[in-house]
């Protein structure tokens, strides 16, 4: 049961605006990348499970308590960017029985490049 993690070089860190998302296609999946104010980069799926559109990279970055969050630009659901856990469903349920929590990717910033790890 060994899974080999591959790191894909997505872009330069400078290409990301702090607290503004960007979408990247990594291994065939849309990934939403967020550079936080402290220059850590977090990655969750770009697909919004509640509306079924690939829009999460266009959401507003913020915080709930200590957790860095993103808010869906569609209907304002809120997720923890570190774990992908949905913090506020806004009383809605996903359109296609998808899980409300988001998939996450490990991101490494090395030599000013953003590397996304995937299987």
């Amino acid at each position: 049961m060994s899974t080999v993690l591959v790191r894909t070089d997505v872009c330069a860190l400078d290409a990301l605006v702090p607290e503004r998302g960007a979408a990247a296609l990594v291994d065939g999946r849309q990934v939403a990348l967020f550079r936080l104010a402290d220059d850590t980069v977090l990655a969750v799926q770009n697909h919004d499970p509640f509306c079924g559109a690939n829009v999460l990279s266009r959401g507003i970055v913020g915080s709930v308590g200590d957790a860095p969050t993103v808010t869906s630009p569609m209907h304002k659901q809120v997720w923890d960017l570190r774990t992908g856990a949905c913090l506020d469903t806004g009383g809605k349920v996903p359109v296609l029985d998808e899980p409300v929590d988001l998939a996450t990717w490990a991101v490494e910033v090395r030599d000013g490049r953003v590397l996304v790890a995937h299987a």
């Binding site: 959401g59 507003i60 913020g62 709930v64 809120v78």
Partner: peptide, 8 residues
């Protein structure tokens, strides 16, 4: 904190 979709 770092704001949210309301206050930003």
């Amino acid at each position: 904190g770092r704001g949210c979709a309301v206050c930003k």
